[in-house]
Design a protein around this nucleic acid. Structure first.
Lengths: 130, 130
DNA sequence: GTCACTGCAAACATTTTGCATGCTA
DNA sequence: TAGCATGCAAAATGTTTGCAGTGAC
């Protein structure tokens, strides 16, 4: 695999790194275009997929079935996401990891993994309408 | 809202109740048709949506972005799902609920909810290829 | 010069919606 | 009979893929 030093690929990476929030592929595409660069939507999807495969980005699905992405380290963690502004905080919880393993063992399940996301209203958004 | 005593609606409800596993809308539709009844796919989606709104069914998204449904009680719980056969077990964990609340409080988030699913290989599927 | 990356457009899969008809109460 | 539920088909949405052209090394 050649180094991803191309402009479109970096544009996606930069756009993702620019904010700590979960972004949809479409909004990233739009942001890059608005910034003046011309990038294909397919390229955005391909770049995001590459980043996810590399462990550089996290992906999760909204209730609407839309995939949203966020620049993240490769270590295991979860997110606390603001329902209002989209701000996301990385959180870790050994208790949950242990609990998940226990549940698996208790029910005879092997190779247990889990998905976990928290949603709430962040302090900046509380008391603010919308 | 009038009683949902129509045949198509009950067919969906029954099909969902028939197994304790997560099923896609399409597979439910197919199952009902195979069973001899003629039901529209749109109706299956509408019925499932109704069940979810009523709190009678749980819905979650697969990595592929497909929505899967399962008959469930209205009380708060999570699922331990077999990656191989799809069997699902309801699990509860007060520790996790507490942890989630703590995390929210710690980061100044209000009204914290969470999504959590466990995936593994159930005892019946272990040691069995595929 | 080679070959991966890009961009466009078409293909795809899933889910939703419009509307005429059928069935329930 | 009145009105919601159904079924079909078309539309909408989000994502992936085929292929020819471009750019990096």
């Amino acid at each position: 695999m050649r180094e991803r030093s191309t402009r479109p690929f970096q544009a996606v990476r930069d756009e993702l790194a620019k904010s700590r929030d979960f972004r949809s592929a479409q909004s990233i595409h739009e942001a890059i275009r608005t910034a003046g660069a011309s990038v294909g939507l397919a390229t955005v999807y391909r770049a995001l997929q590459t980043l996810v495969d590399a462990g550089t980005a996290d992906v999760l699905r909204t209730d609407a079935g839309e995939a949203v992405y966020r620049a993240c380290g490769p270590s295991h963690h979860h997110h606390l996401v603001c329902r209002s502004c989209g701000r996301a905080v990385e959180v870790q919880g050994a208790a949950v990891e242990t609990w998940a393993d226990d549940m698996g063992a208790q029910h005879g399940f092997a190779d247990v993994s889990h998905t976990l996301e928290l949603f709430g209203i962040c302090s900046a958004c509380q008391g603010r309408p919308e």
